[in-house]
C-alpha cells in the first residue's frame, strides 16, 4: 500500500472510555436511527413487481416500429438502423410497397433483442422516425427464439 503525497493523514480514533468500549451507546444510537425511519415511513424500496417505478425520461428500453396516420409502418427499409447498429442485431429484407405514395417497405424486420445493447443509435439514424426505443424493459421469455422480435411484434410494442 503506497501512500501518495496528497493522501490525507490517517485519522486516529479518539480514546474510548469504558462505556465506549462496551459499544452499547453506539448500538442504541443505531437502533434509534432505524426506529426513526420506521416511524417516518419514507423508505425508497418498491414492492416490485406489484409497484413499478416510472422510468426516467430518455430511458432506452425495447424498440417499437411506429405507424403513420393511416396505420402503415413508417419504415421505408432504408437499412440506416441496421447499418449503424454496433451489435448487428437488425435484419431487414425490403420489398416494393403496395401503396401508391410509397416505394419501399420492410418485408422482414427482425431485431435480436438478445444481441441488442440498447444504445439507441437506430433511433438516432432513422430518417423517418420509424423506430424508437420505448420504456418497456421487463419482458422475460422462456426461449431465446422469442427474443427475436419480428415486424408485427415491433409494431405492437
Amino acid at each position: 500500500m503506497g501512500h501518495d503525497a496528497h493522501a490525507e493523514p490517517e485519522k486516529k480514533p479518539g480514546k474510548l472510555g469504558l462505556l465506549g468500549k462496551a459499544y452499547l451507546p453506539a448500538i442504541a444510537q443505531g437502533l434509534l436511527h432505524t426506529l426513526g425511519h420506521i416511524v417516518k415511513w419514507d423508505h425508497n424500496t418498491l414492492n416490485y413487481p406489484d409497484e413499478k417505478r416510472a422510468p426516467f425520461p430518455g430511458y432506452r428500453g425495447e424498440h417499437r416500429l411506429t405507424r403513420d396516420e393511416q396505420g402503415r409502418e413508417k419504415c421505408v427499409a432504408c437499412f440506416m438502423c441496421s447499418t449503424v447498429c454496433p451489435a448487428h442485431c437488425i435484419e431487414i429484407v425490403a420489398e416494393e410497397a403496395p401503396w401508391p405514395d410509397r416505394e419501399k417497405r420492410p418485408k422482414i424486420f427482425n431485431i435480436d433483442m438478445m444481441r441488442c445493447i440498447y444504445c439507441g443509435m437506430c433511433e438516432w439514424a432513422c430518417p423517418c422516425e420509424a423506430i424508437e426505443l420505448t420504456e418497456v424493459f421487463n419482458i422475460p421469455v422462456r426461449t431465446r427464439a422469442e427474443k427475436i422480435y419480428d415486424k408485427e411484434r415491433l409494431l405492437s410494442n
Binding site: 427499409a77 432504408c78 437499412f79 447499418t83 425490403a94 420489398e95 416494393e96 419501399k104
Partner: peptide
C-alpha cells in the same frame, strides 16, 4: 437489383 440490398453491404 431493386430493393435487394444496400450497396455498402
Amino acid at each position: 437489383f431493386m430493393f435487394q440490398s444496400r450497396v455498402w453491404n
